[in-house]
Design a binder for these strands. Structure first.
Lengths: 328, 328
DNA sequence: ATGAAAGCGCTAACAA
DNA sequence: TTGTTAGCGCTTTCAT
């Protein structure tokens, strides 16, 4: 069943049918109706391969993800999906596990553009996509690349605000547990932390870097307890770490926020349901997704080359895991 | 740049090039090399739209997901992705948010087949896909449908084993907090729970149904504490609920598993990092994904109609949140 | 406003 | 073993 069947059924030519399909204005209303009726009756849908072939466009935007178990990704994906749908594009997600060259999406004629979300082998991907001349943007990435628009959150500011908040609560002994230090975001958060302390005439009480997991946070906190070098406040590199910290402290009878204040990062959904609900830094996922889509579509439409890096302000959320320092 | 360029460059016809591309044996080795060389030099990749058009196949399998913040989904997705890649197929994920008809994937010529993972509006989807005559399978679904292969975990068995384990530990006062009771899986888990109790000559100590969230579990447990009707063991409908329960108990100074044993369901990744590590029921994600792919490919290749429902045994994981009942 | 003809890049059928 | 020809289903000139 194809466009010819519709033409036959409606008594018009395939060209007219095609025009109706593409909302061309130069079709008499009577004929348009005839065609629409035939389409309806035949339950016809144009063949997408044929369309792609002749148009040189697919209407598909690919997005490469590394992880499907994270609120941050979930939120970004939803926004991107919705926004692309509004623009008539379809989002095809792909999990980045294989070699870069193996990625099916990375072919000029399969997608009109690509979004890389928190890419792991960022440089490889960028080289490959540039070589293949596929329009793409980076979201939450690590490095800066010439001619590649990217949208990142201001991790420095996040770290700064988190620490500033603790300082404002009167804390002077503030430690930091960051994620894997290979990440630029980790480095930036730390930088914000240090800067805020410096401005207040303070120095880091302690710094440690571990995995973005509950257990790593737990272990670091347990060690600090064992070594009897506990601060009065801890800025954690993400919510998982923070949760591990809270748990370790609680096991030793140290209460959050009564005895020690803890700040997280990312506002992981399930973490928000724990008590004490974590004071944390939320990344502006909606903005990030939205701007990312805008940039990509500009690129695809060959409009002016968008700015290289868009840095978004994070949102600091004060909840229940932080409190004024206890007077001793 | 297309197949003609390669033909020209290699001094052979487009047909020969096509044959090389498709590993046809009837090409002399010398010529094959010539073609390969030309492809290499031109960095040529066949146009996929043209291929799809003429072959009537896309090489793409679509998978519709509702949530990207869950270990269970993450695990299934990874297995499916890997397995499809092995078979030369590409997995395109799509988030199910819009109307069924809006789903871009649901078009015969866009994908060769579809996998529905834990679909929400299951019946609508099934009707639509049947109407469009697209091969598809269901994973972790709710209902049974004629002529649609599906793979589910034996939730009844999961509930049974979890409860049996508690009974074996000497517990007689065993309560259950299930998820939203609209789900068949929730009903099945409950049924297993009740059955295990019955066989042991016991009756449910209490039953409650709430959302699959930490906070719901927390609230139910808090209420039970307030009303002073605590069991010695609780079988929770999933890990989130279980976590909420543990937290609520701990806040009241009731220790898990010392005072009360708690069992979860799903083996959510981050939950495994909490202490006490949760005794839980793991769904066989790898099997589910693998069998799902096999069934779908059978369907696509028009082989014998696969069995309607494949029910997989869950795996019971004894960890640290359960212990023998305390002698009073 | 409508249609005939050409062509997008590829593969399959048939011939040589 | 290789190549010629036709055609997948659609859109886009270019006439009319």
């Amino acid at each position: 069943m194809n466009i010819h069947d519709v033409a036959k059924k409606s008594g018009l030519s395939v060209v007219t049918v095609s025009r109706v399909l593409n909302n061309s204005p130069s079709v008499r209303e009577v004929n348009r109706q005839k065609v629409l009726k035939a389409i309806e009756e035949l339950n016809y849908q144009p063949n997408s391969a044929a369309r792609s072939l002749v148009r040189g466009k697919t209407g598909v935007i690919g997005m490469s993800i590394t992880n499907f178990n994270d609120s941050f990704y979930d939120r970004v994906i939803r926004v991107v999906n919705r926004k692309l749908a509004e623009q008539g594009y379809f989002l095809a997600l792909s999990i980045a596990e294989n070699e870069v060259e193996d990625n099916f999406l990375f072919q000029r004629d399969r997608v009109d553009g690509i979004i890389l979300l928190s890419p792991l082998r960022e440089n490889e991907y960028v080289v490959e996509l540039k070589r293949k001349n596929i329009p793409f943007v980076l979201l939450d990435n690590q490095f800066q690349h010439e001619d590649v628009p990217s949208v990142v959150v201001d991790n420095y500011q996040g770290g700064y605000e988190a620490t500033r908040h603790l300082i404002d609560l009167g804390h002077t002994q503030i430690a930091h547990i960051g994620g894997p230090s290979v990440f630029l975001s980790v480095e930036e958060r730390k930088r914000g932390y240090v800067q805020a302390l410096n401005e207040a005439g303070l120095t880091p009480f302690g710094m440690e870097f571990c995995g973005f997991t509950v257990s790593s946070g737990y272990e670091v906190a347990k060690r600090w307890i064992r070594e009897d070098k506990l601060p009065t406040a801890i800025f954690s590199g993400d919510d998982f770490i923070a949760l591990g910290v809270v748990q370790a402290l609680r096991e030793e009878g140290i209460l959050v926020p009564h005895d020690i204040s803890v700040v997280g990062f990312d506002d992981q959904q399930f973490v928000g349901e724990f008590f004490p609900r974590l004071t944390t830094v939320r990344q502006p996922e909606a903005q990030m997704g939205s701007i990312g889509v805008d940039l990509l579509l500009q690129l695809i439409n060959g409009e002016v080359m968008p700015a290289a890096v868009t840095k978004l302000a994070p949102q600091f959320l004060v909840r229940e895991s932080t409190a004024p320092v206890r007077q001793t």
